[in-house]
Amino acid sequence: MKKKKIILSLIAIILFFSLLFILNSVFNSHQTRILRLCGIYVVLALSLNLINGFTGQFSLGTAGFMAIGAYTSAILTMPPAQKASAYYLEPIVPWLADIEMSFLPALIIAGLISALIGFIVAAPVLRLRDDYLAIATLGFSEIIRVVITNLQNITNGSLGLKGLPNYTNVWWSWGVAVVCIIFMALLINSSYGRALKAIREDEIAAEAMGINLFRNKLFAFTVSSFMAGVGGALLGHLMGTIDPLMFRFTLTYNILLIVVVGGIGSITGSVISGVIVTVAMEALRIVDGNIDLGFMVIKGIPGMRMVIFSILLMVIILFFRRGIMGTNEFSWKWILESKLFKKRKEVA
């Protein structure tokens, strides 16, 4: 059974990448951009779901860690000549001026630095619970953004960084997403994943069962920060331009929306809703512009789609609290057994 599952998973991954290859060649540049964005949002949703959905710690710091990842990777990959011209208000510090590396090491370092900051932030913050934790992480996320705005000689301050190498193609975006999905699935189904879920279900009981609350929360928070950092780096290299204003709270809100729609505590849910919400955000751009109904023209209000998304979030919280998947997961067993069930029916 286990071997069978691995083979089925491998086939699914190969099929998925073939599909990506086809889509990549059929789609125009705008459509592939959305496709790439989907992969990034899947990574970010998994990051937030690990800490919020599986460990049950309400954290809202994703945007801050994305900013760290995006800036790290941007500074590490920009050619020295470009850095020299970009930092015109105040030159970049000498030890960063001549660094130029390829995307993979930059991506990993971006994740690691983000994880390190996450680790440091987590130590005091994780002593808090529920909404207090949310407020504290939100605050830290803003602090990170303010620090970035003011570190003129490292981050170029509020001017931001322009002309980042356009590395994030479909393969990078979805390659990282698939690695994250596999990592999460293996982690959550391991004994450590069960420990995290125990903390979500009942902290007091988990502690009485010998689970070190602080260490496990710290682990989840650090891994979540790593993934947020990598996601932020991918986003930076997709946009080509980053500035501190990009990483405001609204960005965390978008990711939270994906997690809630997909199901808090479901990897499958995060993946499905990561794609749906990202596509919907683009599709709903029409409501931001003028809508011509033939006999009359509805004047577009920029930002209207965010209103629609807010209403959607409210409807989901009021009526479909479990989201698309609840805490359920896709599994091969489920598919295989339902097929077996069908066969038995035919015999009968």
């Binding site: 069960r194 879920k197 279900e201 988990a206 010998g210």
Partner: peptide, 24 residues
């Protein structure tokens, strides 16, 4: 104080976690 959303087996498995000698 059971881990409500988890299965009976998982509830017992979680209590075994403290004797695990490994890392994530």
């Amino acid at each position: 104080r059971l881990f409500k959303e988890l299965s009976v087996l998982e509830n017992v498995l979680i209590a075994n976690h403290l004797r695990l000698k490994s890392n994530p």
